[in-house]
């Protein structure tokens, strides 16, 4: 049984169709990248997965259960969400933020318990941020904040992490720190990742790191292609979707093979 399965999932805002007939299966332990131009529907699809938006037709199943029959808290025990950029409303302590990941396990009128604190601490440790636990998180850098968001998601103890362009605001090094953290998590815990991204090389990075990874190339409300990075992120597809000339580069070295696709120039 697939961990996530969408069948003919469609969504529209009134008359405006945003998603049409999306079919996908995400298997346990893989990284599934959603890749496509701005406005193609990636974020909408992620919100449908999370149950924030309701599909207008078709079904989405999480470990076999139809998402429409699930309560908000039940979905939150299957999927944890890491936003593109997190707005910090108050200078909460890092620990307070990570503890929020435990809310789906507690009643409306209850407080976090000792075990919840323990889980939150372990999550912080996993992303290497335990030393920051009593700091106001408004003082963290963008990269550190994103790691705290990962910790909060881990505290939800879900089988799946869902991320929406999580590295969009990170610098060159922090992007890599983030990707390394995800790779380590997938290897250590068999967690499954669904990630919307604007960087095709993220998919290659995961493949280069020997993690089962697949890509869905989205364009205008639909999946244009779906499969391994090699099959989907081709020079031909880059031209068809983005109207760009690109070059796929493959390099063999002592640690295995290294693939990247480089943008060369745009066509009108």
């Amino acid at each position: 049984m697939s961990i996530i399965e969408a069948r003919k999932a469609s969504f529209s805002y009134g008359e405006l169709k945003v998603l049409e007939n999306i079919d996908l299966k995400v298997e346990e332990g893989e990284i599934f990248c959603l890749f496509g131009p701005n406005g193609c529907g990636k974020t909408t699809f992620i919100q449908c997965l999370l149950g924030i938006l309701k599909t207008s037709s078709g079904t989405i199943r999480l470990r076999g259960r139809d998402i429409r029959g699930m309560k908000t808290a039940e979905i939150a025990r299957e999927l944890a969400y890491i936003p593109q950029v997190h707005e910090k409303p108050f200078p909460y302590k890092v620990m307070d933020v990570v503890l929020m990941g435990r809310v789906s396990y507690t009643g409306l009128f209850s407080l976090p318990k000792k075990e919840d604190r323990k889980t939150a601490e372990e999550a912080l440790k996993r992303v290497g941020m335990l030393a920051f636990k009593d700091k106001p998180y408004t003082q963290l850098s963008g990269g550190e904040t994103q790691l705290v968001m990962v910790a909060r998601a881990l505290a939800q103890q879900t089988p799946v992490l869902v991320m929406d362009e999580p590295t969009a605001h990170l610098d060159f090094r922090n992007e890599l720190v983030f990707l390394e953290t995800i790779v380590r998590l997938v290897k250590d815990t068999k967690i499954t990742v669904v990630m919307a991204t604007h960087f095709p090389n993220h998919a290659f990075y995961f493949e280069n790191s020997n993690i089962a990874s697949r890509v869905a190339l989205m364009n205008e409300r639909m999946f244009y292609a779906q499969g391994s990075p090699d099959d989907v992120l081709t020079e031909r597809n880059m031209y068809d979707i983005f109207r760009i000339k690109s070059k796929l580069i493959s390099h063999k070295w002592e640690e295995g093979s290294l693939k990247q696709i480089l943008p060369i120039k745009t066509y009108v």
Binding site: Q47, I75, G101
Partner: peptide, 8 residues
């Protein structure tokens, strides 16, 4: 959205 995804 975040609050919803956290399970509230």
């Amino acid at each position: 959205r975040e609050a919803q995804a956290l399970g509230v």
